[in-house]
Simulated scan of single mutants.
Amino acid sequence: MTMVLFRRVPVSSPIHNLWAGTKMISAFLISFLLMFLPTWPVLGVMIVFLVLIGVLARLPLGTLPRLPWWFWALLLLGGAINVPVGTQAVVRYAQTVVFALIMVAASFVVAWTTPMSDIAPALAKLAAPLRKLRVPVDEWAVVVALTLRGLPLLMDEIRVLRAARKLRPKDNPLYLATENPLIDILTAAMAVSTRRAGELGEAITARGGTGELAAYPSSPGRSDAIALVIVVAVCAGAFALGMSLL
């Protein structure tokens, strides 16, 4: 399975130039709408809207994930399980699957058009009013920043562990003792992640703390206001369409 995750696609587009917080707010508005009105008209409008966003962002077709056959087989199996319950259950199941795929696609669009280093500062700025309630906004933002930074490293580590396991001789008693490759790789990945987390914590402590989240934090501009107005208008139109067809 080949896919681009947690990496910005290096192209220039109006979507890439938007502030990270604008994209996060847009994804939240879409999820909020679909959570309360996941009807087929609303789902269709959101699919078309995300396709247009992808075209405007100039995302190449090679960016799309190539999901394995067993993923689609599991989806069909879930639908088959709901068939004896009734047609309404199958429809609800299909709506839930489409809703989940739309949210995953929206998250991928944010990841493909935004540097991961901009997510945490934008999150801290959006949650700034919570500081008055003594909410540890900065600490949460640091955790998000470290998590986003560590996920690509963890994925690369898992690829290395998979390759190393394939190179082990199959007649080795150690190989025969661990018949489940998934458990082996996950166990090794957890051990490596724990070690790296400890080393990272010691390095942060030695430097006197996390410091600033970004050297040059970005802020929303006029284009971000226009983008939010468009997103709100699309969500409002989809809501009106969905309510009129109920």
Results as ranks from 00 to 15, higher is better:
231 V>Q: 01
124 A>T: 00
31 S>H: 12
148 L>M: 14
16 H>A: 08
16 H>C: 06
145 A>D: 15
79 G>H: 14
86 G>Q: 11
140 W>A: 13
97 V>C: 02
96 T>P: 03
245 L>M: 13
130 L>F: 01
75 L>N: 02
78 G>A: 09
192 V>C: 03
33 L>T: 13
36 F>I: 08
229 V>L: 14
14 P>K: 01
203 A>P: 03
142 V>N: 03
112 W>P: 03
189 A>T: 08
159 R>V: 12
245 L>N: 06
135 V>C: 00
46 M>S: 07
74 L>C: 06
66 R>F: 10
51 V>N: 12
83 V>L: 12
13 S>E: 03
106 A>G: 04
232 V>A: 12
119 I>V: 15
46 M>D: 03
103 M>Q: 10
4 V>G: 01
153 L>E: 09
240 A>I: 08
124 A>F: 00
17 N>D: 13
102 I>D: 05
180 N>L: 04
169 P>C: 04
49 F>E: 00
74 L>P: 07
176 L>T: 08
45 V>Y: 07
49 F>T: 00
161 L>M: 06
114 T>I: 00
146 L>R: 14
13 S>C: 00
204 I>E: 02
163 A>E: 15
111 A>V: 05
144 V>E: 10
202 E>R: 13
124 A>P: 00
46 M>F: 06
138 D>L: 09
170 K>C: 01
217 P>G: 08
229 V>N: 02
42 V>P: 07
204 I>N: 03
70 W>N: 06
81 I>H: 03
205 T>H: 11
88 Q>K: 13
55 V>S: 11
74 L>E: 06
22 T>K: 13
13 S>R: 04
168 R>M: 14
32 F>W: 04
23 K>S: 13
103 M>F: 09
36 F>D: 02
47 I>C: 10
215 A>P: 04
87 T>S: 15
204 I>H: 00
51 V>S: 07
90 V>K: 02
235 C>I: 10
84 P>M: 13
128 A>Q: 11
